[in-house]
Design a protein around this nucleic acid. Structure first.
Length: 542
RNA sequence: GGCCCUGUCGUCUAGAGGCCUAGGACACGGCCCUUUCAAGGCCGCGACACGGGUUCGAAUCCCGUCAGGGUCACCA
């Protein structure tokens, strides 16, 4: 490995499923490394003991694998396992007088900040000296000190590639920041700097929210004698509805909003809602009032069901959401890449290989894009229309693996392939699922839409029903149950009655599917089978 | 509020002083196709935030205004 090899990394903190913003950051790092023939490393930043769980790590890894972003380090780097390394370094800094113990409690600091806010100023930590008495008192109180890095006071300046310019911070902004927390864990700032250096990271691509964090980082690099990596900060993706940073919380917000509407429209109280959901009333009441509290992933479905929200109604934020809603990973990557990067000219739809070939840092855009899913859907549609049957089948199977409730589970690969073919032009795999559900559901689970029954079957003195009645013996007579044969019989009937295909096909459609929308009817009937088709028509006539 | 970043159609963007009466994609509207819903084909609508400079010439450079976003933790 030569010195010029590019090494990038993705360093998420494990707090649940990967979200779109994180995925884009991972993708850009991956793309840069692959393009340059370098390495893409993965590190788990689990220094926040309260929030990090192994479950979250597993979910993260699953999403990354699904996206196809393979990392090159065989052994995952967990910061929580590297404490001795950090501590040795921190103790060294203290010995050199470059860091020191600070004893202020969170409450004291909080008070100082509020005071600063009152006079409309940013609070800047100032180092204090403690008397021996102070120290004794703190220890008696059981306080745990943090370690702060003594920032050399000067102007800091670094170059950012995506911004294409130098960013600087004045000496007046400089403040001593915490590098070791009271619980003995290093802070994010310390962990990144040390690990990036030790892992040989040459390029740091991260969200723009980290732009000013770079200042403490370069200060630490200077103190520790590390080289400075190349920095490229990525724009933040915005929620098109709120205009704010795309956040996992956005889904919860949608549920809350809908719940409030539900209560208003149905004239129900929070207790009614809680009862209907089977959740604790006081918990729900806390949740509905504040924007800061979120429902657990396990609680969301029951509330959604009660207030009438479907999975597809929620904004997809997490990669897992996109997977559940039936997007293809290569399409999602393509779309994510376009949020802030493009190869120039008119080229938009690209394979991973093409993106890898064309990727370059100087084509990254610094302005914040609003994350609008319309185009993603269109890309998904386009991809599906050109993908091989094998690819589509694999996609559908993957979709089913994260949608355990789908009735398509009982279908064979051959049937799934037929469904995929019938639904050609579909946008998401979820549409394939929902549109063809009736083909695999037991007869008694078909839900008849009242509007459809009224309009197509009962209207005009039950004209639709009359058609079904006529059709029943004709269809019964079909020996070889194939779409073409069924079509021939139905067409002959249409010809004879001069009703028009619409007047005949729609009643059949409602009878077998319960609604007015389905895949092409004759293929559907073939797949459904003769017995089930006749049975469902009979049920309508009874 | 301080500090920082950004500002081309509704959205994602092309555009590196003349190739720009600003190109593409999505969305939207219309027409065609059609047994439903889609998909598809054709056509259309639609933007350089504003004000000053610099220049023979500015979407492109500079300044200001305005707007949007980020950040101000013992979270990352």
């Amino acid at each position: 490995m030569s010195n010029s090899t590019i090494v990038t990394r993705f360093a998420p903190s494990p707090t649940g499923y990967l979200h779109a913003g994180g995925a884009r950051t991972a993708l850009f790092n991956w793309l840069l490394a692959r393009h340059a023939g370098g390495k893409f490393l993965l590190r788990i930043e689990d220094t926040d003991l309260a929030r990090s769980t192994q479950d979250a790590v597993d979910q993260l890894l699953e999403d990354l694998k699904w996206l196809g972003l393979k990392w090159d380090n065989a052994e995952l780097v967990y910061q929580s396992k590297r404490l001795p390394i950090y501590n040795k370094l921190i103790d060294g800094l203290i010995a050199d007088g470059k860091a020191y113990e600070a004893w202020e409690s969170s409450e004291e600091l909080e008070a100082l900040r509020t005071e600063a806010a009152k006079s409309k100023k940013a609070y800047i930590y100032k180092r204090r000296s403690y008397s021996a008495d102070d120290l004794n008192r703190f220890r008696d109180e059981g306080r745990k000190p943090v370690v702060r890095f003594a920032m050399p006071v000067k102007e800091y300046r670094f170059h950012d590639i995506t911004l294409g310019k130098d960013i600087s911070q004045s000496p007046y902004e400089v403040q001593d920041f915490v590098i070791r927390k009271g619980d003995g864990m290093p802070t994010y700032h310390f962990g990144v700097v040390v690990d990036d250096a030790e892992m040989g990271v040459t390029h740091v691509l991260r969200g723009l929210e980290h732009l000013l964090n770079t200042v403490p980082h370069i200060a630490l690099q200077e103190a520790l004698g590390y080289p400075r990596p190349t920095y490229a900060h990525l724009s933040v993706m915005l929620n098109p509805e709120t205009g704010e940073k795309l956040s996992k919380r956005d889904r919860d917000r949608r549920i809350r909003k809908k719940s409030q509407e539900w209560m208003r429209n149905q004239k129900k109280s929070i207790d009614d809602l809680a009862a209907a959901c089977g959740l604790a009333s006081d918990r729900l009441s806390d949740w509905i009032k504040t924007d800061t509290m979120q429902l657990d992933l396990s609680e969301q479905p029951s509330v959604m069901k009660v207030v009438g929200l479907k999975e597809a109604d929620l904004p997809e934020i997490m990669i897992h959401d996109f997977r559940k809603n039936g997007y293809f990973p290569e399409v999602l990557n393509n779309f994510l890449a376009l949020q802030g990067w493009n190869p120039g000219g008119d080229l938009e739809q690209m394979s991973m290989e093409k993106m890898t070939e064309l990727f370059s840092l100087d084509r990254i855009n610094p302005s914040n894009p609003k994350f609008n899913r319309d185009k993603l859907q269109s890309f998904n549609t386009e991809f599906a229309s050109t993908a091989s049957p094998a690819r589509l089948l694999a996609g559908l199977r993957d979709y089913l693996s994260v949608n355990p409730d789908s009735s398509l589970h009982t279908a064979s690969d051959a049937d799934l392939l037929k469904v995929l073919e019938m639904k050609k032009g579909f946008r998401t795999l979820r549409q394939v699922d929902e549109a063809s559900r009736f083909l695999f559901q037991p007869d008694d689970q078909i839900a008849y839409e009242p509007d459809a029954v009224e309009k197509v079957l009962k209207k005009n003195d039950g004209q639709g029903l009359a058609v079904l009645k006529d059709l029943l013996p004709l269809l019964t007579a079909v020996v070889d149950w194939k779409a073409a044969n069924i079509e021939a019989v139905v067409n002959a009937y249409v010809e004879q009655t001069k009703l028009g295909l619409g007047k005949v096909a729609q009643p059949i459609r409602v009878a077998v599917s319960g609604g007015t929308v389905s895949p092409p009817i004759f293929e559907s009937l073939e797949l459904l089978g003769k017995d089930k088709t006749l049975g469902r028509i009979n049920r309508c006539l009874m």
